[in-house]
Amino acid sequence: MHALNQSVAVGPLGLSIGQLLIVLAFGVALMAGALIGRRHRVPVADTLFSLLLVALVGARLLFVARYWGSYDGLLSLLDIRDGGFDPLGGVVAGLGYAAWRLWKAPRQRTALSGALLAGAFTWGLTAGPLLLLESQSRPLPDTPLATLEGDSTDLPALAEREARPMVVNLWATWCPPCRREMPVFEQAQREEQDITFVFVNQGEDVALVNRFLDHESLSLENVLLDARNALGDATGAMAMPTTLYYDAEGRLVDTHFGELSRATLQRGLERLR
């Protein structure tokens, strides 16, 4: 049985459904702002794009402040490919900027207020069902997998043997973000003894996977093969890499789409605990 998609692959780019809903809400805000602004002869598109940028910067800054010790230097702080954003920082920064613009530019108030209300209504209307879906218990899928030695297994069997929280990474050797994040997982698997890390390769054969691990000098436990990409279908993860966090009872508690850094992995592990 296929799960409802949690992500969408657009070429090499993977977006979560939540991210797509934000894009949709922003698009609606732009259209509403353009329609109302045309009536009042005042443009607000530049203000809306500035607000979006301020919100993203605020979300990034708060996330970096929370996980400062997990970043190695300035370049890693600026590398937003890890998806390290704190929604609270984005909301506070965005609302602050919006309030300042409403006070500073009286002519924009009607159009900007209408745009913000339209965007907020769209996001609330579409995100509600998504949050309800995510709150429902989704157990470990029993998709047939294989070890590098050729033995058959599945995630529930591994979870029963280990009896501890599990982090499942869906990856492939052709996927650059997957390759970049592997050393992060290797270090975490070595340090986090109370977590089981599982690496499920999607659609590749054992020879190719072994060559990749040897070439990269990676020492990973629990590398499994999913020749038919069935686990991605079962979990609704259409983009790679995808990292799934399951508690000790086998319930999905968090999902990360895209590349991980030490900081974003640490955030996911905190939610497991």
Rank of each mutant, 00 (worst) to 15 (best):
S135H: 15
E134A: 15
P129N: 10
P156L: 03
T143K: 08
A157W: 01
S137E: 11
A146H: 09
A146I: 00
P141E: 09
A146S: 08
P139G: 08
A146W: 07
A127Q: 15
G128A: 15
T147C: 10
S137G: 11
D154Y: 07
L125T: 10
A146F: 08
T143C: 13
G150H: 08
L131W: 13
P139N: 06
A157I: 01
A146E: 06
P129K: 09
L125M: 13
L133E: 11
G128K: 15
L130V: 09
G150L: 09
T143E: 14
P144F: 02
T153A: 09
D154G: 02
L148K: 06
P144C: 03
P139C: 09
L132M: 14
P144S: 02
E149R: 11
S135E: 13
P144V: 00
G150A: 08
A127C: 13
G128C: 12
E149L: 09
L133V: 01
S137C: 09
G150F: 12
T147H: 12
L133Y: 12
L145I: 02
S137K: 11
D142F: 00
L130Y: 06
L155R: 02
L140H: 02
T147F: 03
A127E: 14
T147Y: 05
P141T: 02
L145H: 09
L132N: 08
R138Y: 11
E134N: 13
P156T: 01
G128H: 15
P156K: 00
G128N: 15
G128E: 14
T126Y: 06
S135R: 15
S152K: 06
L131V: 12
A157M: 07
T153F: 08
D154S: 11
G150R: 04
T143Q: 13
P129L: 07
R138N: 05
P139H: 05
D142I: 00
L145F: 05
P129E: 10
R138E: 06
L140C: 03
D151F: 03
E149C: 03
L132D: 11
L145Q: 12
L130P: 00
A127T: 07
D142E: 10
A146Y: 08
L140T: 01
L125V: 06
S137F: 10
E134W: 07
D142M: 01
L155E: 04
L148T: 00
R138I: 02
P156W: 01
L131H: 14
G150I: 03
S137M: 10
D142H: 03
P144K: 00
Q136N: 13
D154L: 04
P129C: 07
P156N: 01
P139I: 04
L140A: 02
D154H: 12
L133M: 05
L148Y: 02
L132C: 11
L148P: 00
L130M: 11
L148M: 05
P156S: 02
L140G: 02
G128V: 04
Q136W: 14
D142G: 13
L145R: 08
D142S: 14
T126W: 12
S135V: 05
L130W: 11
E149G: 10
